[in-house]
Structures are given as C-alpha cells and as structure tokens.
Amino acid sequence: MADDNFEPRIIAFCCNWCSYAGADLAGVSRLQYPPNILVIRVMCSGMVHPNLVIDALTKGADGVLICGCHPGDCHYLEGNLKAESRKDAIELMLEDFGLEPERFRLEWISASEGPRFAEVMREMTETIRGLGPSPYRQ
C-alpha cells in the first residue's frame, strides 16, 4: 500500500482567529512540518459546509482538516461547536463514499499553539501517508 513516492495532498480549513494564527505562529517559531498541507483560511470552523469537505475528498484530496478554536474560545461564541456537531454527518458521508474516517479530522488549535499546529500537521501527514492515496485521486 504505502508508496515511497506518494506525497499526500491535504487541505486544512483554518479559522482566521485561532488555527490560522496558530499556523502563522508555527512559522514565526520556525517549527518545521511536512509540505503536504495547503491551508484555506475561513472566518470560522462553523463556516465549512460538509459538502465542501466531501467535495475536496472526492476531487482528489487525500485528507481534509477543519481547525477551529477550543470550545469556549470561539470568536463567534459557538461556531466551533456547530462544526463539531457536523462531524458525525461528515463521517457518515465518508463511509458512503468509501473513504476511511481518518481522512477527515476536526482539531482545536488556538492562536498560541504553534507547536500543536505543527504536531497535528505532522500527524495528519503521517496518517495519510499510511493510508495511501485517496481512491478518488487520478
């Protein structure tokens, strides 16, 4: 399964107020992680439609992350909790599309958690590397 030349393509939807800032802090701190993640900035993790996640995975992304604020810290009070409540639905859809549940991950990363951002990105890349390319990837 694991192909040495396989370079995972992962999309991370990051909340502008926390995880996106956490990603910036990882940079400011020069914390290195694999170049397999493309960050798309959103205003809130609660803004990401489940369809967008499924679209990404069925169009060839090997993994998708939604990163938001820790519970209680949401800039919009509870948008992150809305994102969390959609997690189960997304996982069910993954099953329907024949995708492993590990290809989607919801994470809370604050603006001060640069090390955690880098760690989550490393972990996700390794997980996806282990799973191999998405069956939808051409």
Binding site: V42, M43, C44, G46, M47, H49, L52, D55, Y76, G79
Partner: peptide
C-alpha cells in the same frame, strides 16, 4: 459573518460575502 448559516443551509440559499461556496469551491 461567521458563516454558520452558510454551512447549515442545504440549498445554497445563504452565504458569507468574500467566502461564497463557489469561492471556497
């Protein structure tokens, strides 16, 4: 402009300016 509405809508009936579903798409 948090967009919780946008991600809840099953009909693409509401969006956040600057973060439209087609823009994110």
């Amino acid at each position: 402009g948090c967009g919780v509405c946008m991600a809840t809508c099953p009909k693409m009936g509401i969006f956040v300016r600057g973060f439209k579903p087609e823009q994110l798409g």
